[in-house]
C-alpha cells in the first residue's frame, strides 16, 4: 500500500486535458476513483496495461500514463486477453461503456468471464451511447427515450451483475460515481483479485440520457444515484425492492485463473516433449 499523497497529475497525460468528456459527465469521476485506487495500491505504472474499445468511456485509456491500447468497438477484452495471457505479470484493466461491453462486446464479456482470466473489466454504465449522440443501449431498459427510441424503448436491459455472475466472473461488484470512495475501494479489490473481475459503476450522461429522459443535470442525476441505490442487503429494500444494490456480489478465490491454468498445460506439454 502507498501512503504518499495522491496527485492525479502523476498518473495522467496532462497535455490532453481538459478531457473531451462533456461538463458533468460521470466518466471523469470513474477515472479519478481508478487513479486513486491504483495510487493507493502502489502499483508500478509500467505494469499496467489499460485496454479500451470505442465510445466516450474508452477514451480513458489515452488519458492515463500507463501502457494504453485503444482498440476497436466492443473487442477490448479480446485484445486484453492477448496481452494478459502472453504476459501474465501485467495488470490488465479494461474500462468499457455499456454498449461497448454488452452490445457489440457482449460475447467477449461472457467468454472472458467464463475463462476467469485475470482482467479487471470496468463497465461505466450511463445507459446510453454517448459518442454517437444518444442512442439507447442494452442497459437503457424499457420505457426510456433515446434518439433511436423517439417513442420510448421496448428493449429489456441486462443486469450486469447477474450476467457476470452467471457467466463465471469471480469478482462482481457495483457502485456509482456518487459513491466515489466506495467505487475506488471496489476497484482496488477488483484489480488485486486473481481472476476475472467486473465492476459496474453507474455514471451519468447529462448531455443525452439526462436531457432525453428528464432526469435533470449532472447534480440531479448524482442525487438519483444517492437516493436510488443501497448497500447490499439494506433494510431499505424491504420497503422498496426496486432500489439498486451496491457492493460486492461475488468474490470467489477458489476457481483457477486462466493464465495459471495454462502454465500447467505448458508444464504437461513440456514433460511429454522431453
Amino acid at each position: 500500500m502507498n501512503d504518499t499523497p495522491f496527485n492525479f497529475k502523476d498518473y495522467v497525460r496532462s497535455r490532453f486535458f481538459p478531457h473531451m468528456w462533456c461538463p458533468g459527465c460521470g466518466h471523469g469521476i470513474v477515472l479519478g476513483s481508478l487513479l486513486r485506487g491504483i495510487h493507493e495500491l502502489g502499483l508500478n505504472k509500467n505494469e499496467i496495461v489499460m485496454t479500451s474499445g470505442i465510445g466516450c468511456s474508452s477514451r480513458i485509456s489515452g488519458y492515463v500514463d500507463f501502457h494504453s491500447l485503444h482498440t476497436i468497438h466492443g473487442r477490448a477484452l479480446s485484445f486484453a486477453t492477448g496481452v494478459k495471457l502472453s504476459r501474465p505479470h501485467l495488470k490488465a484493466i479494461v474500462p468499457m461503456g455499456d454498449g461497448d461491453a454488452l452490445a457489440i462486446g457482449g460475447n467477449h464479456f461472457i467468454h472472458a468471464a467464463r475463462r476467469n482470466i485475470d482482467i479487471t473489466a470496468i463497465v461505466m454504465n450511463n445507459k446510453i451511447y454517448g459518442m454517437t449522440g444518444g442512442q439507447f443501449s442494452p442497459l437503457s431498459g424499457p420505457g426510456k427515450k433515446a434518439t433511436t427510441a423517439p417513442y420510448s424503448t421496448i428493449d429489456n436491459e441486462f443486469d450486469i451483475v447477474e450476467l457476470a455472475k452467471s457467466a463465471g466472473a469471480t469478482f462482481v461488484a457495483r457502485s456509482t460515481v456518487f459513491h466515489a470512495v466506495e467505487a475506488k475501494d471496489l476497484l482496488k479489490k477488483a484489480i488485486m483479485h486473481k481472476g476475472f473481475s467486473v465492476v459496474e459503476i453507474l455514471s451519468q450522461c447529462p448531455t443525452y440520457y439526462g436531457r432525453k429522459n428528464k432526469e435533470g443535470d449532472a447534480v440531479q442525476m448524482m442525487e438519483g444515484f444517492k437516493n436510488n441505490t443501497v448497500k447490499i442487503g439494506s433494510k431499505k429494500l424491504e420497503k422498496n425492492p426496486n432500489l439498486i444494490q451496491r457492493g460486492i456480489f461475488v468474490e470467489d478465490t477458489d476457481k483457477p485463473e486462466y493464465c495459471e491454468a495454462y502454465d500447467h498445460i505448458i508444464e504437461t506439454a513440456m514433460k511429454g516433449n522431453s
Binding site: T51, L69, T71, I72, R75, A76, L77, S78, F79, A80, T81, G82, V83, K84, L85, S86, N107, H108, H111, Y262, I265, I266, T268, A269, M270, G272, N273
Partner: peptide
C-alpha cells in the same frame, strides 16, 4: 505449449484477431 508458447481458442475469429494483436504488443 511444448515450446513454452501460448495457444488460446477464442470465442470467435474477431476475438482471435484481437488477442494476437494484444500479444504482439
Amino acid at each position: 505449449p511444448q515450446t513454452g508458447g501460448k495457444f488460446i481458442q477464442m470465442e470467435d475469429e474477431i476475438a482471435s484477431m484481437g488477442a494476437i494483436i494484444g500479444a504482439s504488443l
